[in-house]
Amino acid sequence: MAFSANLEMTGSEARITLEGELDAAVADQFRQTVERAAQEKPQKLVLFMDKLQFMASAGLRVLVFAKQRMGRDVAIYVIGATGPVLNTMQMSGFHQAVYLRESYP
């Protein structure tokens, strides 16, 4: 399934909806979306992953980039990650570094 990363700014929140398969071939699309979000200087980054079917380490590296680009004070929320995508985050220790939520208001 084709990958997409769509950014929506809601107040001081940057919301990015990820869909499809996130591998090294498309990770730069995600990184560029994070970069656009960073330029808005959000206080919170919310990533909706319920429609993300696959995530390779290239996707995890973009999460590291997001944190380092936006700064320590910008919390990253991961919403709806399930099954193997969640498992990949757990194996890599990322579940401790972001706020995991099943849903988001």
Partner: peptide, 23 residues
């Protein structure tokens, strides 16, 4: 210890082969 680090202190890279061989 590396896997416990906050994202601010993470090296970018090194996870791919770890995920491959562990999986």
């Amino acid at each position: 210890e590396d896997l416990d680090k906050p994202l601010d202190d993470r090296e970018i890279g090194g996870l791919g082969i770890f995920l491959a061989l562990a999986g």
